[in-house]
Design a protein around this nucleic acid. Structure first.
Lengths: 212, 212
DNA sequence: TATCTTATAAACAGTAATGTTGATAACTAT
DNA sequence: ATAGTTATCAACATTACTGTTTATAAGATA
């Protein structure tokens, strides 16, 4: 009988290391979050996706709320790692098409990263998670942007503190735009009569052209 | 005894019109949403803030989810009204300091409006609410921006379709930046070493200067 | 004033979420 | 092998959130 078969099949357990189990569960939680938005992030649903019971989640995370906190932290950390990884793939920091900055942009706003980030922000989380990674990332980007500013100025001499401030504004602008684009992009694009597909690319080119 | 006093005090009922009751409840819901983020938007909490029982909410809105939908719609409508109101206060659409566009910016990103908007977006709501208001608003802004672009060009002749496209990009940029700023602004500002108070103003000036 | 409507509330009911317990199977170490 | 550890699960318990019913008081209308 089917019931007997499943009953016997059920006996098999996969025993993971705590780290593996946590990672598996966090991934499932992220999947669920992308799928259904801020509400509906319940441990039973997550457990179903991860292929475990909800008590396993409670075992590893303590409580449902603790899982959410861990998820928020984990997502910020992974996002930063992704951006760092992307930055290391280019040979020079700023090729003529500003591609590194825009690869960062893409990581931020594509694939729902900005929405997940927004969820994190909206929760009012501490966001002290990955503060050091963040600082390292910022320093790296900042140095590159300063360099690009001086290059763009050509012969003209740019004072260090001016370039520094300018670079900070540029980074701030790109970051906020990326977040806003990721969250409200599709909606705004429709409203404004930019039909997503081509216009997105055009917009980014236009944006890049007036950054420096 | 205190219990007797409250028991007697409880007898007094405030009887509101349906419109008043709905408005009161929606305001409480918004307050709660600002305070606690996407979760914790439960009708009992909202009822407590509004000073009614949760069954009153159910009476007026039908269900908890219906309240959330109404809230999302209501917020978008109010936001648009605010922006429209702000736009009508200036005599010309684009004075030299671009103040109207930035008053719009402020409405969008200040006082948690962007966070509420983000919540709305994250819910995956239709957002068809206020679509016509939105279009009217967009047309108004768009016309102003086109005008400003041509003014900025001075003697040079700007083709209509070029100005139109340019204007759309500018509006898109301002809107996405405003949303991103409202959501991630405080966090990013700290990270980037712009200490909120003064730098915010400076950033907006810098931003305005390179828009046209 | 009398009647009707309905906004409100209290108590109850149902459901869906989280959390708890005890047993067991899958590893590790001795 | 054997013992010890613990990740896992099923069943149960509990909380909390939503929804229902019934009664009542505040107005409106006549």
């Amino acid at each position: 009988m089917a019931t007997t078969a499943t009953a016997e099949a059920r006996k098999k357990r996969i025993r993971r290391s705590p780290a593996e189990a946590r990672a598996l569960i966090l991934k499932a939680a992220q999947t669920r979050l992308k799928a259904v938005g801020p509400e509906g992030l319940q441990i039973k649903e997550i457990a179903a996706i991860a292929g475990v019971t909800h008590s396993t989640i409670l075992h590893h995370f303590g409580s449902a709320e603790d899982l959410r906190v861990s998820l928020a932290e984990n997502m910020v950390e992974k996002l930063l790692d992704d951006i760092l990884a992307v930055m290391d793939t280019g040979d020079t920091v700023f090729p003529e098409d500003h591609s590194v900055l825009f690869r960062v942009f893409e990581v931020l706003c594509d694939d729902g990263n900005a929405r997940l980030l927004a969820w994190t922000m909206l929760r009012g989380a501490d966001l002290r998670a990955g503060e050091d990674t963040l600082m390292a990332l910022f320093d790296k980007i900042h140095a590159g942007v300063v360099q690009a500013i001086k290059a763009a100025a050509g012969d003209m001499v740019v004072k260090d503190d001016v370039a520094d401030r300018h670079a900070r504004f540029i980074i701030y602008l790109v970051a906020t735009t990326a977040v806003g684009d990721g969250i409200a992009g599709p909606y705004l694009a429709r409203l404004i009569g930019l039909d997503e597909m081509e216009a997105t690319k055009d917009f980014r080119d236009w944006f890049a052209a007036r950054l420096f």
